[in-house]
């Protein structure tokens, strides 16, 4: 092979590449859209995980929108009070303290509680499985169990239990909401950390069907709604819902009334990282 051709091609391509990149970088400097100096400062304070919980592609974009006044500091669900204060100082605004949010698994229908209606052998992800006859679990509302939420978690705060349900490690959860948007069934919900009472079911079937599908399904009997004060809980589509605005967090609990144990108090200890060692 002609060594000359090699050199010529290297030099010509290299030269062109160099010229173009030179031109581009010069133009980049010249045509740069001015950035607010505060953006860099705020980016320092933000968690830098680029989790997308704020709705922007990354922390940089969020910082930019903060300086433009297009979003609030509370828009970042991840950053702690300290960081929020620092950002508020940079922006020169007051920040109201807000309660920490954590993700909750709103389904108890693991492998022990609900049966499978068939064997699914496709792509091992919840989104793919829902496309095939709504997943392989009997319940059409509950957790599918392939762990899309665990995959989506950028903070290592989730794992799949042996029972086939995701578990949130509360002390690691930052409340970014990635798991909630990953779940095709809406099983993952963000709740303020002070909420402890939950209806851990999404099944909207009638009593008979719901009972056949899952041992821990809300069958829509409504006994909990009658046990609490008016308006604190409501029945909607055969499913009990808690009205957290009205419901005092520490009032008497109607949990023992629930025959299928789907209305539960989630103790903080149950979802700590100690369990990962066990």
């Amino acid at each position: 092979m002609d060594i000359n051709a090699l050199i010529v091609s290297m030099v010509s391509m290299g030269g062109m590449g160099f010229l173009f990149s030179l031109g581009l970088s010069l133009a980049g400097k010249k045509l740069q859209v001015e950035e607010d100096p505060r953006v860099a400062l705020i980016r320092e304070e933000l968690p830098g995980a680029n989790c997308g919980g704020c709705g922007y592609p990354g922390c940089g974009n969020f910082a930019e929108n903060l300086t433009l006044g297009k979003s609030e500091i509370s828009g970042c669900p991840v950053c702690n009070q300290e960081a929020a204060d620092a950002i508020a100082a940079i922006l020169g605004v007051e920040v109201e303290s807000r309660e920490r949010q954590v993700a909750r698994v709103m389904c108890q229908g693991g492998l022990d509680e609900t049966a499978k209606k068939g064997t699914y052998a496709g792509i091992q992800s919840c989104i793919a499985a829902t496309l095939v006859h709504g997943g392989d679990k009997l319940c059409d509302y509950g957790c599918i169990g392939f762990g899309d939420c665990v995959q989506a978690c950028t903070f290592d705060a989730m794992y799949m239990s042996a029972n086939g349900l995701p578990v949130v490690l509360e002390d690691r959860c930052t409340g970014c909401g990635n798991c909630a948007s990953a779940c095709p069934r809406g099983i993952m919900e963000l709740h303020p950390v002070s909420h402890t009472l939950f209806v851990l079911c999404k099944n909207e079937d009638g009593p008979k069907e719901a009972r056949q599908t899952c041992l821990k399904a809300c069958i829509g009997c409504g006994i909990c709604v009658r046990a609490v004060n008016e308006g604190e809980m409501i029945m909607e589509n055969n499913l009990a819902k808690i009205n957290y605005d009205v419901y005092g967090h520490q009032t008497v609990l109607p949990t023992d009334k629930c025959s299928t144990n789907c209305l539960v108090v989630v103790p903080a200890a149950e979802q700590s990282s100690e369990k990962i060692a066990a």
Binding site: S9, S12, L24, A27
Partner: peptide, 27 residues
């Protein structure tokens, strides 16, 4: 220089830089 074989690479290079430049300008 008898390096016509490089036309694909060279053209892609040109087009990509050009579009980048246009994009910067418009932005």
């Amino acid at each position: 220089y008898n390096v016509e074989i490089l036309e694909y690479v060279a053209f892609i290079l040109v087009i990509a830089s050009l579009v980048q430049l246009v994009e910067m300008f418009i932005r």
